[in-house]
């Protein structure tokens, strides 16, 4: 026999409730380095107006944000900065890699440009294009919201999946600069 509930009471799972709250209050951290940053600005400006999709609160302090949008190429001098800012953000946090350069290095297959930030930090959503149009970025944010709603748990167990843990591709290039190889991964430890 069903329990009689008043009209203004709904039943849900706690996980879904938490995900629903999280997905609709994404605070982006614009890590804009190059051309894609201009499209990021255009996305936030008058015509495209990201506020319609609940992710318009751009904050420049990583402590306040939970979505990092890496817009533009990341070069080797910038990568430690990127990593430090990523580490300063609080969990749960997500990362959108906007544009070809951030995702793969794009046309810049040169000595200085990191060939895809996903080698060094975890990435949740890739936006193709050079630069992507604002509509594409908006679509990526909507997709990320879907992903958070469908996969999210209140304890963040989805982040423990093996595919989310490891950098996505083989690290083939050897390090130099007279240092010992720094690609030795620390052993996987089990959280909780």
């Amino acid at each position: 026999m069903a329990i009689e509930l008043p009209d203004n009471v709904m039943v849900s799972k706690l996980d879904q409730l938490a995900s629903w709250c999280r997905k609709n209050s994404l605070w982006p951290m614009p890590f804009a380095t190059a051309c894609c940053g201009i499209e990021l600005m255009a996305t936030g400006a008058s015509r495209h107006d990201l506020a319609r999709f609940g992710a318009e609160v751009f904050r420049f302090s990583p402590r306040q944000c939970d979505l990092m949008i890496v817009a533009g190429r990341v070069v080797m001098k910038m990568l430690p900065v990127l990593q430090r800012i990523w580490q300063q953000m609080h969990e749960p946090k997500w990362c959108i890699s906007m544009g070809a350069c951030a995702s793969t290095g794009g046309v810049f297959d040169t000595y200085a440009v990191v060939q895809g930030i996903d080698r060094f930090i975890p990435v949740d959503m890739y936006v193709p294009g050079c630069p992507p149009r604002p509509e594409q970025l908006i679509q990526a944010i909507i997709d990320l919201q879907d992903k958070i709603q469908n996969e999210g748990t209140i304890l963040g167990q989805e982040f423990d999946m093996a595919s989310r843990q490891q950098p996505k591709r083989a690290l083939v290039e050897l390090p130099v600069l007279g240092q010992s190889p720094t690609f030795v991964r620390p052993p996987l430890e089990v959280r909780r």
Binding site: T33, A34, G72, R73, V75, K77, M78, V81, V107, F108, D109, T110, Y111, A112, V113
Partner: peptide
């Protein structure tokens, strides 16, 4: 500076 040096002249 140099935080966006991507080797334009080399490419």
């Amino acid at each position: 500076i140099g935080y966006l040096h991507s080797g334009f002249e080399k490419i």
